[in-house]
Computed example of a mutant assay.
Amino acid sequence: MLRLADSDRPSASKMQYHKFEVQETLKALKTPEPEPWAAGEYDWDDMLQEIIAIHRYRWDYGYTIVQGTGYLLDPEFVDVDQHLDAETMESLTRFFAKTYPKPKPFEPGSTPTELEKQAYEEGCRAAVANRSAAEIQLLEYKMKRGVFSRETVWETAKHVSAADFWFLYGSGVKELQLVAMRACAQVAGAGSAERGHKMMNFIEDRNRNRLLWEDVESRMYVCWNSLQLEKLEHVERKAGELPICFKEFED
C-alpha cells in the first residue's frame, strides 16, 4: 500500500482492495502465545481489536468515492462481487451524480422565465438519462457482454492500466467510459502536488516573500517547462549523434 500511495501511477482504484486485504488479514490473526516475560501483562485480544479499530478509522478517514468507484471499474477486479458491498455501490452512485450533475435549482423567491424552466427540466432529464445509461452499461461490463465478451479484451487487461483499458474498449459505453477514466486515472498519493509545493517554496522564500501570486505562477510555469525543455533537448542531441564509423580511420 505504501508503494501505491507514493507512486505517480494511477492506483487509486486498487487502494480499497488492499485495505480490505489488510482488514481481513488482521481479523484472521490468532492470539499468539505470550512470551514468559510478558505473561499476564498484555491482553492480546484487546490489543488486536484496538489495531483493527485503528485500521478501520484510517480507512474511514482516507476513503473517497474515487477509490470505491475505481475499485468497481478496475478490470483487475471484474470478477469480484462488489455489488454486494453497500459502501462501494454508494460511492458509485455519488460518482455518477458528480459526473452527470443536475442543473442548479433556482434560488428561492426568484422568478425564472419559461425558457429557463425548460432548460432546467431538460438538464435534469439529460442527467438522469446519462446516469441510467451508465448503470446499464455497468451491467454489460460486469456480465462481460458485448465487447467485454471477447477473450482478447481480458488478456489485454492484464498488461495495461485500468485507465488505458477503458480508453481502448470504452467507446461503445460512452457514459460509463467517462466515469471509469475519471476514477481509474487518479493517483493514490500526493507526490505530484508535493513536488509543486517544494518548487513554490523555492521560488517564494523569505527573501522573495512579496511576490504576487501571478508572479509566482509565472515563475513556476517557466521552471517546470524549462525542465521539460532540457529533457527534450537532451533527447534531440542523442538522436542527432551519429555513430562513429571506424572504417574511415583504417587508412
Rank of each mutant, 00 (worst) to 15 (best):
M47H: 10
W44F: 15
T64G: 03
R58L: 10
E35I: 08
E41T: 05
M47N: 07
L84E: 15
I65Q: 07
V66G: 00
D43C: 12
H55E: 12
L84D: 11
I65W: 00
T69K: 07
D45Y: 08
G62F: 06
Y71V: 02
E76T: 11
T31W: 01
W37E: 14
V80E: 11
R58A: 12
G40F: 05
Q82L: 04
P36F: 04
P36M: 08
D43L: 14
E76V: 09
A38W: 07
I51R: 13
Y63R: 07
Q49T: 00
V80N: 04
A53Y: 05
I54M: 07
P34D: 06
L48A: 12
A39D: 12
Q49V: 01
Y63K: 01
A38P: 01
V66P: 00
G62E: 06
T69L: 04
A38M: 14
D43Q: 10
D43N: 15
Y63A: 01
R56V: 03
V80H: 12
L48M: 14
Q82R: 04
D60G: 05
I52V: 13
P34R: 06
E35C: 06
I54W: 05
Y57F: 14
Y42H: 11
R58D: 07
P34Y: 03
L29M: 15
T64S: 09
Q67A: 03
G68M: 05
P32S: 13
H55S: 09
I51P: 00
A53V: 04
I65E: 10
R58F: 05
L72P: 00
P75I: 04
